[in-house]
Write a protein that binds this DNA or RNA. Sequence first.
DNA 1: TCCATCGTTCGAATTTTTTCGAACCTTTTA
DNA 2: TAAAAGGTTCGAAAAAATTCGAACGATGGA
Lengths: 110, 110
Amino acid sequence: MSSSPDLPHPERSEISLTTVLFALSDPERLAIARQLVDGPLDMAECHLSNPDVPKSTKSHLMKVLRTSGVVRNEANGRARRLSLRREDLDARFPGLLDSVLSADDGGQKP
Amino acid sequence: MSSSPDLPHPERSEISLTTVLFALSDPERLAIARQLVDGPLDMAECHLSNPDVPKSTKSHLMKVLRTSGVVRNEANGRARRLSLRREDLDARFPGLLDSVLSADDGGQKP
DNA sequence: TCCATCGTTCGAATTTTTTCGAACCTTTTA
DNA sequence: TAAAAGGTTCGAAAAAATTCGAACGATGGA
């Protein structure tokens, strides 16, 4: 019962601004982050704009968000619990997350 | 004397959040934006971390910043005057530019 | 006028990201 | 105990970004 894999996360001090910006620069990843503002969600509850994308692709999007420090990904039964690393991000880059998440995106990247 | 090329710029309403985030997600481009906070600069006065990068590469970095709406690029004699589109960005994404530019970047992307 | 300066653009090569199927692992349920 | 559910990882293929030299254009000065 050696439990689900513990995935690597950067610690707060290791979170890089440009890496975070990159993670959020993709519409799909930004949309995921926005779904997490009201609290953690299991991965299956995070919806992509295209529901037919393979799970490996979805997993990769999550990986970019995790390794950048935007999202925490922990085992939760056989599921994965995703949460915004709000405290870490607010401490490291004050105001950034709020401005990004509350921004009204009009033009979309194709 | 048909004057230097007028390069295309997105209008305020066309500026896309994810595109702006992408433009700023590169350390070199972010550094350029930061050099413009205190006012416009001619291109030759914007320094890259590596002074030996070819001008075509530098021009391309500027293009990404311009087409995303982060920077304005206008003819100025035989030079190019670069300026931050602060008003447009503040209007479109309140707080974003301030938080990004004032953020203390620690970890760098290689 | 001629020429050096300051930048843009083009195309090709390289590098980085993204996408996806297949294989695998753990937990829950039958 | 077997099988299904929920996800990660790997490798290869496809797509997108970056880099750079060469060619070009406009401006300002000699």
